[in-house]
């Protein structure tokens, strides 16, 4: 009797679940596998698709611009996540020392860039880096540091640094807020006990706070790495991959080849390589930062 009742609930449950499965199959799962097949084919988008084996993959690895794009995406992924995790965790820790009211204010301000669409963030920063009247150069001129004035986004020596800064500017607040939430979950008595034993603030951070918030640090590191590896909007709006193809990133080069040059198979192959790199990144973070969750 109980079994059949459970089975009836399970059947109704499947009906409840069906819309989600159908929609996700059509708009994510099926296209993904079709993309896998397409990566072994040649297609200009109109004629018939024909199999070419692994030629698209060979072409991809022999393509200098795609190699540059991989290097740039991985660079931005690793360094923007490193910066935003280090600064974000530091900020979260510092928030423990300020009063409640000012802490709330700091959190709201520092978190706000995470809520602005990336295109808009980038367009705002085009004001900052603009060579003639941009904020950065104007500040340097105003304080007499003419030697620091740069064409920030067209100079190869500065452009990656600028992209890194914008990407971290956007990501730090999220890391901070997540890790602060984790720190708030630590029972107070632990800190008091440590203080009574004579532990310093830095010691408490290293030995109590950091280990007990590791699952939050891991999660924010994954978020930051993903947003760096998948960065597209920011680069498009600030440099469009320039100067030349110096700041080309993976999604942008795939977009260009597919939708501008009509190389659908080649684009598909590069996007499969992109997926593999993203998955490796995710696994690497999970290996590097142990995400043990604690129940208090």
């Amino acid at each position: 009797m109980a079994v059949s009742v459970n089975r009836r609930y399970a059947m109704i449950g499947l009906v409840f679940l069906l819309p989600a499965i159908v929609v996700y199959l059509i708009f994510a799962v099926v296209p993904f596998f079709d993309n896998l097949i397409l990566s072994f084919q040649e297609w200009n988008g109109f004629s018939a698709r024909s199999f070419v084996g692994i030629r698209n993959y060979i072409d991809a690895f022999e393509d200098d611009i795609f190699r540059t794009a991989i290097k740039n995406s991985v660079f931005l992924g690793i360094f923007s996540s490193l910066i935003s995790v280090i600064i974000g965790v530091l900020f979260a820790w510092l928030l423990l020392f300020v009063s409640r009211a000012s802490g709330g204010l700091y959190r709201t301000i520092l978190f706000s860039p995470s809520m602005i669409p990336a295109v808009i963030t980038a367009l705002i920063f085009s004001f900052v880096f603009e060579p003639e009247f941009g904020i950065l150069n104007s500040v340097f001129r105003a304080v007499g540091l003419e030697s620091m004035v740069h064409a920030w986004l067209t100079d190869q020596g500065t452009v990656m640094g600028c992209l890194l800064f914008v990407s971290a500017w956007k990501q730090v607040g999220l890391t901070m807020v997540l890790c602060f939430a984790g720190m708030q979950g630590i029972p107070f008595s632990l800190f008091e006990a440590a203080k009574l034993e004579g532990a310093g603030d830095w010691y408490i951070f290293r030995r109590i706070i950091a280990p007990l918030t590791s699952s939050f640090i891991q999660l924010s590191a994954i978020f930051a790495l993903m947003s760096g590896l998948k960065i597209y909007d920011t680069v498009l709006a600030l440099t469009n991959g320039g100067p030349g193809n110096y700041t080309m990133v993976m999604p942008m080069w795939i977009m260009k080849n597919t939708f501008s040059f009509n190389e659908y198979g080649f684009g598909a192959a590069m996007s499969v390589i992109f997926v593999v790199i993203v998955l490796i990144g995710e696994i690497a973070v999970k290996k590097l930062i142990k995400g043990d969750a604690y129940e208090f």
Partner: peptide
């Protein structure tokens, strides 16, 4: 399965989806 797919970059889905 849903959450694993969620990590896949969009561009690996957009190409066939656009043609569809």
């Amino acid at each position: 399965v849903f959450m694993t797919f969620n990590f896949i970059p969009g561009i690996a889905i957009y190409i066939p989806l656009y043609k569809m």
